[in-house]
Design a protein around this nucleic acid. Structure first.
Length: 451
RNA sequence: GCACAGGUGACCGAGUGGUUAAUGGUAGCAGACUGUAAAUCUGCCGCUCUUCGGAGCUACGGAGGUUCGAAUCCUCCCCUGUGCA
């Protein structure tokens, strides 16, 4: 089954851009693998760095405040030089605020104006998260992009309840920003004057440099509907992708990247809530923008609502968000979904799906979904996805991957995850390419289909 | 040969007169997974039909028997393990 075409215009509102961080650039639209507890489960950092076609690899991954706070503890991470150093990841990092855990650990928590008190799922001890605390932890971890502390409204939720939740998130957003602005210089790599990123620098267009903000982000080009505009905006990137040098752990972030004035402090993103009510979504967006952030996330989605609802909420919110700043939809989605959202003008997305599904034996391929544990692959000599260029598809057969999975070999999780992430990253790479060419319609229609 | 202990669905293993097609595991088959309490969870798993409510067969080593009713009690036989000759 193919997704209904929702974006008819060539590249429509889709944008291709580049986000600058102190730890390298991020080409958008981007998919960001989840590295919750300081690890993208089952995949070593050096492999993350050259995942997918062209060895561009993951340019940014997520970490999680809640998990890293509980174990090993944010102070420990700070003392060891911050999360980048701790986990040997020199590229960009985004940390989630712990807001989502407030939602997913619902039986163990209690929400108040002050914040959220909760019991650790590890040992039952009591803890309190407040916006200030979340900022303190994320700054200690040293993320390049820090997320405001929010409440992910449960679904379904009555309108009044949703409004109250939204209001709480807005008040928390304000508090998050206040604390963040005061303390962002305490981030470990700021202290050590992290300026080693950036190399030759002659490839980047001067006009764009002028737009670079001191505070991560910034330069987000809007691709107007219409090929000319798109081409104009992205002319500078014409040969960017193919020419990006392969990055290794050693030189990541040091070579190949244009010499921007790298941000010297982390950036804080606001989060739009509002449940499944478009008017609340709009209001949440407006009021979050009033507070003022260098980027905006759309949270509270993929919590059980229909895909049509998700799309509707994203569309309603995107209308309100600044066109020249990053927009990040949190927690999505399937390959066909991230393509669609990118086409709608979303710049960043993250999701546990490719990694978790991989560990459960579900592979995403150009043909749809493949449950590699199925008996029918027992003697299948083909690679998981014959059209995929990843190192797994280039080397192993379905029969072997099925054997590994059935035998519960840890390598099954490793290889499956590598493939899925490569597939996701390649999907986004293709989306960027399509935007560059000014025509996304082919991607929306064809390559990604529902199984 | 004698003495004990046993023989339960693909395997291991509960059950020792009645909601028993038979608890649990394992293996097998399939499904789910969306800011990660997830290498997790769910369903199916004797055979044949089914209007998906169910219906009918065949089953606890084999053959008889007791009983309204037996995987469960009795008899004989077969087989396995341990010990003694």
């Amino acid at each position: 089954m193919t997704l209904p075409l929702t974006i008819q215009a060539k590249s429509g509102p889709a944008r291709q851009a580049r986000i600058h961080t102190a730890h390298g650039d991020v080409e958008t639209p981007a998919f960001m693998p989840c590295g919750t507890a300081g690890s993208v489960k089952a995949v070593p950092q050096d492999i993350l760095e050259d995942l997918g076609s062209g060895n561009l690899g993951a340019q940014i991954i997520l970490g999680n405040t809640y998990h890293l706070y509980l174990r090993p503890g944010h102070e420990l991470v700070r003392n060891l030089g911050g999360l980048h150093k701790f986990m040997s990841w020199e590229r960009a990092l985004l940390t989630d605020s712990g807001g989502f855990q407030v939602f997913s650990l619902s039986e163990l928590r209690k929400v108040s104006e002050e914040g959220v008190s909760f019991r650790s799922h590890l040992d039952g001890t009591s803890h309190l998260f407040t916006p200030e605390r979340s900022m303190e932890i994320q700054i200690a971890l040293g993320a390049d992009i820090v997320m405001a502390f929010d409440e992910c409204t449960e679904h379904p939720a009555e309108k009044e309840r949703t409004r109250q939740s939204m209001e709480l998130t807005l008040r928390w957003a304000k508090r998050s920003k206040e604390y963040f602005e005061k303390h962002k210089n305490e981030c470990p790599w700021v202290e050590s004057g992290h300026r080693e990123i950036g190399g030759s620098g002659d490839r980047e267009n001067q006009d764009q440099e002028a737009e670079v903000s001191e505070s991560a982000i910034p330069e987000c080009h809007r691709a107007q509907p219409g090929a000319a505009a798109v081409h104009d905006s992205f002319a500078v990137h014409e040969s960017f992708l193919p020419e990006l040098p392969t990055l290794s752990a050693k030189n990541a972030g040091r070579m190949g990247y244009p010499n921007h004035e790298s941000p010297t402090t982390p950036a804080l993103f606001g989060i739009v809530q509002g449940g499944m009510y478009t008017d609340l979504r709009r209001e949440s967006a407006e009021r979050t923008i009033e507070i003022g952030f260098p980027g905006y996330a759309i949270g509270g989605l993929s919590v059980g609502e229909s895909r049509e609802k998700t799309r509707e909420m994203i569309a309603a919110t995107l209308e309100m968000l600044p066109k020249d700043q990053p927009r990040y939809v949190m927690g999505v989605g399937y390959p066909e979904e991230i393509v669609q959202y990118a086409a709608m003008g979303v710049d960043m997305m993250d999701c546990v799906l490719p990694t978790r599904a991989a560990r459960h034996g579900l592979l995403f391929t150009s043909e749809g979904r493949m449950n590699i544990k199925n008996a029918r692959y027992a003697q299948d000599q083909l690679p998981p996805d014959p059209k995929c260029n990843c190192r797994v598809c280039g080397r192993y057969t379905r029969a072997y991957l099925r054997h590994l999975f059935v035998s519960q070999e840890p390598l099954a999780a490793v290889l499956n995850t590598i493939h899925n992430l490569a597939f996701y990253l390649d999907t986004m790479r293709s989306v960027r390419h399509a935007i560059e060419l000014g025509d996304l319609s082919g991607m929306l229609r064809g390559s990604v289909s529902l199984a």
